[in-house]
Amino acid sequence: MEALLIIDYTNDFVADDGALTCGEPGQAIANRIVNLADSFYQHGDAVILPTDLHELNDPYHPETDLFPPHNLENTPGRDYYGPLADWVAEHKDADNVYIYPKNRYSSFANSNLDNYLRSRDIKDIHLSGVCTDICVLHTAVDAYNLDYNMTVHTDAVASFSPEGHTWAINHFKNSLGAKLVTG
């Protein structure tokens, strides 16, 4: 069994009016992300959606000072973007779909992700979502440190910084040993 992680693919990170949007680069990967989700789901593999969750003006969270408020609970900004919203609505109760909130860049930090994967003997993870050089990157670093085999779908990750995106893609391959695939 393998797992696809779709990281932070929400309106706040992707939509034109998102609070911290990567805009067109994020929007361009919408169909690819849903195609990957369908493929993994149909093969019985895990589809995992770690999704940022914040409180407005949280004085204890470091992102409060770094970024504008984003992915606040019960706001349209935290809803999944585009066709992924429909996919999640249809599949959210399936046994091989795992949706959980995260409160740090890495999908592993302060979460049950490692236990979820190990309990299912999943050693191979595939990364997609946004932002390539922030949450996807930090998830990849933790996955590397936890000895997971990683594949990054370069046509299913995006960022608001083209330079950061390119740097992270190179880092996945050259420093974390990730396999890079497209299509």
Score class of each variant (00 low, 15 high):
Leu5His: 07
Leu5Val: 08
Leu5Lys: 04
Ile7Tyr: 00
Asp8Gln: 05
Thr10Pro: 02
Asn11Gln: 10
Asp12Ile: 06
Phe13Trp: 06
Val14Leu: 04
Val14Gln: 08
Val14Cys: 11
Ala15Trp: 08
Asp17Ile: 04
Gly18Thr: 07
Ala19Tyr: 10
Leu20Asp: 06
Leu20Tyr: 12
Thr21Ile: 11
Cys22Ala: 14
Cys22Lys: 07
Gly23Tyr: 10
Glu24His: 05
Pro25Ile: 07
Gly26Phe: 10
Ala28Glu: 10
Ile29Gly: 00
Ile29Asp: 01
Arg32Cys: 04
Phe40Asp: 03
His43Asp: 13
Gly44Ile: 10
Val47Ala: 04
Val47Glu: 03
Ile48Trp: 04
Pro50Ser: 02
Thr51Ser: 09
Asp52Thr: 05
Asp52Arg: 09
Leu53Lys: 10
Leu53Phe: 07
His54Asn: 06
His54Tyr: 12
Glu55His: 13
Glu55Pro: 02
Leu56Val: 11
His61Ser: 10
His61Lys: 13
Pro62Trp: 15
Glu63Pro: 03
Leu66Met: 14
Phe67Leu: 15
His70Phe: 03
Glu73Met: 13
Glu73Thr: 07
Asn74Thr: 13
Thr75Gln: 05
Thr75Lys: 10
Leu84Glu: 08
Ala85Ser: 14
Asp86Pro: 00
Asp86Trp: 06
Trp87Leu: 12
Val88Lys: 00
His91Gln: 14
Lys92Met: 15
Ala94Gly: 03
Asp95Thr: 12
Val97Glu: 08
Val97Asn: 07
Pro101Ile: 08
Arg104Thr: 12
Ser106Glu: 09
Ser107Cys: 10
Ser107Ala: 15
Ala109Glu: 10
Asn110Ser: 13
Asn110Arg: 12
Asn110Lys: 14
Asn110Pro: 02
Asn112Asp: 15
Leu113Pro: 03
Tyr116Cys: 00
Tyr116Glu: 05
Leu117Thr: 00
Leu117Trp: 00
Arg120Tyr: 13
Asp121Val: 02
Ile125Ser: 05
His126Asn: 13
Leu127Glu: 03
Gly129Phe: 03
Val130Lys: 05
Cys131Arg: 07
Thr132Asn: 02
Thr132Cys: 08
Asp133Ala: 05
Asp133Cys: 08
Asp133Gln: 01
Ile134Thr: 09
Leu137Glu: 01
Leu137Tyr: 07
His138Phe: 15
Asp142Lys: 01
Tyr144Met: 13
Leu146Arg: 15
Leu146Ile: 02
Met150Thr: 07
Met150Ser: 05
Met150Ile: 10
Thr151Pro: 01
Thr151Ile: 09
Thr151Val: 12
Thr154Ser: 03
Asp155Pro: 00
Ala156Tyr: 05
Phe160Ser: 09
Pro162His: 09
Pro162Val: 04
Pro162Met: 08
Pro162Glu: 08
Gly164Ser: 13
Gly164Leu: 10
His165Asn: 08
His171Ile: 01
Phe172Ala: 06
Phe172Ile: 04
Asn174Ser: 11
Ser175Tyr: 13
